[in-house]
Design a protein around this nucleic acid. Structure first.
Length: 223
DNA sequence: CGCCAGGCCGTGT
DNA sequence: ACACGGCATGGC
């Protein structure tokens, strides 16, 4: 599937951000939210000089809530982002680099303990902000896997269903050199999202893609 | 106008 | 353990 997607859609150059901290902000803001809306929030933050750790730190949560309003769920996301900064300050001496130097496994546990951070957000941060070799699963991949019957029927949004998806991904790339895994996981998730966007809208614009029609919520199952 | 978005969390069984 | 709403806001 990955090779098909690479051929059909090409390199995606993910994550769309200029710094690791911007990746983290985007990861929070895009939770069940269209990226378009996230862009407007990030633009607000940029104009407020708050695309950095220091910028968010200096921002009252009330003001943060106004700036990220376009991406919704503000009463959750604003405090959640504040809690992340507090973790960096309290446990990593206020430095993202210290956090990035932490091994993936214990770091993942620390992230999951934060409010507003579930498995996908944690893994997106680990992979795209810190370059860890961690696969990311999402709703699109869940639909694809389910409709192609790549996993036993039904398990989905819960923790077990998420783990099944990432296990499937790790297995699919298991024969590739370990040193290439981070790059492959990076590209694979980016492609899944790209094709998801292409097929979930009113007009599908990725014709010829072998996954066409699998991404909409109301899509039928493949035989 | 109605559906849905690159989830997460609290509650009820 | 697991399904099920609710959560805010805006694009299409």
């Amino acid at each position: 599937m990955h090779e098909w997607l690479v051929t059909a859609c090409g390199p995606q150059h993910w994550w769309p951000a200029n710094t690791p901290f911007e990746v983290i902000l985007g990861a929070y803001l895009t939770q069940n939210t269209a990226w378009k809306a996230v862009e407007r929030s990030l633009d607000n933050l940029k104009r407020a000089g708050a695309l950095t750790l220091e910028g968010i730190r200096a921002l009252p949560v009330e003001r943060l809530r106004e700036l990220i309003r376009p991406s919704g769920f503000v009463t959750r996301k604003a405090p959640a982002i504040k809690a992340f900064v507090a973790l960096v300050d309290d446990q990593f001496a206020g430095s993202l680099k210290n956090m990035a130097a932490t091994p993936a496994d214990p770091l993942r546990a620390r992230l999951l303990a934060l409010p507003g951070v579930g498995p996908e957000t944690a893994d997106a941060i680990l992979l795209y902000a810190f370059g860890k070799a961690v696969p990311v699963a999402d709703e699109y991949l869940r639909r694809i896997a389910e409709r192609h019957r790549l996993l036993s029927p039904a398990p989905s949004h819960n923790r077990k269903g998420y783990d099944a998806l990432t296990r499937l991904t790790r297995g699919a790339f298991a024969s590739d050199p370990p040193a290439s895994h981070a790059g492959l996981y990076n590209e694979f998730h980016a492609l899944v999202v790209a094709v998801g966007k292409a097929h979930c809208g009113r007009k599908a614009n990725c014709d010829g893609c072998p996954l066409a029609g699998d991404l909409r919520r109301d899509a039928d199952q493949k035989p």
